[in-house]
Nucleic acid binder design. Structure first.
Lengths: 188, 188
DNA sequence: CAAGCTTGTAAGCGCCTGCTTACAAGCTAC
DNA sequence: GTAGCTTGTAAGCAGGCGCTTACAAGCTTG
């Protein structure tokens, strides 16, 4: 049994808030998520949010910073990202950070900073997959594709993607992307 | 000379408001644009916004509905979209609708409807460019790429794209996209 | 020139936002 | 057992939001 009868547990409350915030930011983005929403979903008084995190922005940074960008081999990175994007979100909270960042496109500086940092890391990894001089541009174009797919699938939720088989998508995307980054490998 | 000394001109005021709204929605998205912002940029009392448009949402719909999706031949559509996306925004107000929709990713139903309608039209055009059975999926993947490029360039504004030569980008994207939609043509 | 409509203005309403404060309730150490 | 800290609660503050109202200023028609 899990410890269910715990009350007055600061660490647990903090974690509950963080989880609720992560979910809501991914679902609605930064602007449309209110601190009251977060507290309600966490089943917690909203004042505690400020006690434990200081501000809504600080909570956002913490919710999006545990990126868990695994140390995947770059040649498999694209295939893995596609898999993450295309598997049903319901199955555990997958890498929602991408979705969160896509939903948070305002002028908000914190969000923009998080987005830029993440982008740079992925780009650097992908840029190793070609010997062409314009490796960065090629990497960014491929990354842009991932963002676009993530956008249309997770955010816009247009019909074809909703029913699309992940394998089919991968078999379409990988060869095309290989035109830009020739060292992209197939999934294992 | 243009007629500058016109006052009490309802049509002109309406148009000024519409222009200001279009710009601001593209710059900041729906949520972060306030009716006061719009009225201020238009140099007009904000009550007039409600007199002429009824609500902020109605104004948004009108600002994004003049899509001007030209009747381009589908095989040239991708090249043309890329050109639109990559030419400096400063040069006249280009097709900002894509940017606006990207910046407006909340739960807002009106924005989602506009986005869906536009997407469907572009997809239908692109789907004619292959004889494969999964034409729709292929078209959506290509469109996703355009969205991603638009996102990274216009919204996220990451470095490589900012300095990228439009022709270079096109020469990278078109051949790769042709893996999905074989009838894509080069720019004229 | 005055009636009557249209266009523009100033003020403010009710609501929601992020955030704070004052205080009650529970836990731990002596 | 009670002092003193930590955890949770209720209420509310100031400011910004979309939107409305009451009214002044201008134009058009007899």
């Amino acid at each position: 049994m899990t410890e269910e009868i715990r009350r007055r547990d600061a660490a647990a409350t903090r974690q509950t808030l963080l989880t609720a915030a992560t979910e809501l930011f991914a679902e609605r983005g930064y602007d449309r998520t209110t601190v009251r929403d977060i507290a309600t979903r966490a089943g917690v008084n909203q004042a505690l949010l400020f006690r434990y995190f200081g501000s809504k922005e600080a909570l956002f940074v913490e919710a999006t910073s545990d990126t868990s960008l695994r140390e995947t081999e770059p040649s498999l990175l694209l295939a893995e990202m596609l898999e993450h994007l295309l598997t049903p979100v319901s199955s555990g909270h997958r890498d929602q950070v991408l979705t969160t960042l896509l939903r948070t496109l305002g002028t908000d500086e914190e969000a923009a900073a998080v987005r830029r940092r993440l982008t740079t890391r992925y780009m650097a990894a992908l840029a190793t997959l070609t010997d062409e001089p314009d490796a960065d541009l090629r990497a960014e174009l491929v990354l842009a594709w991932v963002f676009g797919i993530s956008f249309m699938r997770g955010v816009s939720a247009t019909p074809p993607f909703a029913n699309a088989d992940p394998d089919t998508v991968r078999e379409l995307v990988l060869p095309a992307a290989r035109q830009l980054l020739e060292k992209i490998a197939d999934a294992t």
